[in-house]
Nucleic acid binder design. Structure first.
Length: 429
RNA sequence: GGGGAGAUACUCAAGCGGCCAACGAGGACAGACUGUAAAUCUGUUGGUAUACACCUUCGCAGGUUCGAAUCCUGCUCUCCCCA
């Protein structure tokens, strides 16, 4: 068994741990869990930190449990400023659970015969038949409201001008605490991990275990991932960056990591890749000498994309990126055949355009906003073209531009570009 | 049950009868500079339109007025305080 806590520490993934946690892990193979909200049928990269924690945990010889928060997800954690959630029906809950499990299997070993094989559980399974009366009698009795009110997540919502807090949300920490107790009983789970905002919820669990079972359980949290510029991690204009190719194409996924800022890249590569310390250290020192090489971002993007989407998807993403961001010109574009282009650009948004629209030329504005929805309105398209922000086949265009057959690449494709990074492939049929 | 405050564009937040498509800030997008970075500077940020202009928008529904985000009435929702 290797030292899990030490591993997290050098990776910058350790925010806080209860005293005795390290000793417990050194003593014996231990089970730990993190909770995941099944609000969608895919994980997004905000989940990735927790998952990497579990991965390291399993690597260290311990046993990871992933808890799907079917029950708690219905309530909504008052930590942060999240509002009340909508309830999920059981059918979509199960669907989400299955999809998420498949994704987790990319990181964790669920199947092996090893004693530390990962396990997926869903708190809906033990909460659904737990009656309110039973719950308040068996669980509620052991925790005082005073204790619950002292939690930051609760205090924040009770004070100030906020939206207030429903009783349902207030009970969240108790329900989560009971999860921990349940896992402690069923799986001898002695550790709960999560983001630092979960500390209060986790300690309610350890407290419950102490009072109900006279047991000792532990908490370990990682820092919340931030961006150097203060923005939210993992969000782009289009929303979350998902692990599922259905929602975020491998190309987009790769690009997300590749455009990480210098200030963030050093932290991220430690957290989101499994690279060893020496390799990361040398990458970082090389990056500091020659930041413009972007070696760090490239490596980060490669590692994470490979882990999530596999080698082949990674290679396509790289190929697409080279064509789009390399020094390639209209000439290079034209040298490619339609097959290659279609293949490489799988991840960029695509539109279809009928061939006869091009007869006699098509106004650029109409092309951008009517025939395709690259822009939502003609006004916006016009402004952007006037602002020198639109390229067709890598060449800037102005308002006089007419799209016609001469613009077709390989006889059937047009590559439109909004700004530097947003590409669209138009398939003329 | 009683009293008070409020609902404005992606978010926060001005405006309190015409000069309001609506100050400002943030965010987002784009341009310049760069390294597909950061910082900085510039532009854009309801729709149609080259433009004049027109249309739709300030919780919902009505009303007053030449004219309403702004005044009146009713409704819905939110928050706070007291019981």
């Amino acid at each position: 068994m290797s030292n899990f806590v030490e591993e997290l520490r050098w990776r910058g993934m350790l925010h806080d741990a209860m005293p005795g946690t390290e000793e417990q892990l050194a003593k014996e193979m231990t089970s730990a869990y993190v909770g995941i909200d099944p609000t969608a049928d895919s994980l997004h990269i905000g989940h990735l930190v927790s998952i990497m924690m579990l991965r390291h945990f399993q690597n260290a010889g311990h046993r990871p449990l992933a808890l799907i928060g079917g029950a708690t997800g219905m309530i909504g954690d008052p930590s942060g400023k999240s509002k009340e959630r909508n309830l999920l029906d059981e059918e979509s809950l199960r669907h989400n659970q299955e999809s998420i499990k498949a994704q987790l299997a990319l990181f964790l070993d669920f199947d092996s015969e090893a004693p530390n094989a990962a396990k997926l559980v869903n708190n809906y399974d033990w909460m659904k038949d737990f009656s309110f009366l039973d719950f308040i009698r068996d669980i509620g009795k052991h925790i005082t409201v005073n204790y619950m009110m002292a939690k930051d997540s609760v205090k924040k919502r009770l004070s100030g001008e906020g939206e207030g807090m429903s009783f349902t949300e207030f009970t969240y920490q108790l329900v989560q605490g009971f999860d921990f107790l349940h896992l402690y009983r069923e799986y001898d789970c002695k550790l709960q991990m999560g983001g630092s905002d979960q500390w209060g919820n986790i300690t309610t669990g350890t407290e419950l275990i102490r009072r109900k079972e006279s047991g000792e359980a532990f908490a370990l949290t990682c820092p919340l991932i931030t961006k150097a510029d203060g923005g939210k991690f993992g969000k782009t204009e289009e929303g979350n960056v998902w692990l599922s190719a259905k929602y975020t194409s491998p190309y987009k996924f790769y690009q997300f990591w590749k455009t990480t800022s210098d200030a963030d890249a050093e932290r991220y590569i430690k957290i989101f890749t499994l690279l060893e310390k020496e390799e990361i250290d040398s990458l970082i020192s090389r990056h500091q000498e020659a930041a413009h090489q972007r070696e760090l971002q490239t490596k980060l993007a490669e590692e994470v994309t490979r882990m999530v989407h596999g080698q082949e998807a990674l290679e396509n993403a790289i190929k697409a990126s080279e064509i789009l961001f390399g020094k390639s010109t209209e000439e290079d574009l034209r040298s490619l055949d339609a097959e290659t282009l279609m293949d490489v650009f799988q991840g960029v948004p695509q539109f279809e355009l009928s061939n006869d629209k091009l007869e006699g030329g098509l106004e650029i504005i109409s092309f951008l906003a009517e025939e395709t929805s690259i822009f939502p309105s003609k006004g916006e398209a016009r402004k952007m073209v006037q602002g020198n922000g639109v390229s067709i086949n890598k060449s800037k265009v102005d308002l006089n531009k007419q799209i016609n057959k001469a613009d077709l690449i390989a006889g059937k494709l047009i590559l439109a570009q909004k700004g530097k990074r947003n590409y669209f492939l138009i398939n003329v049929v």
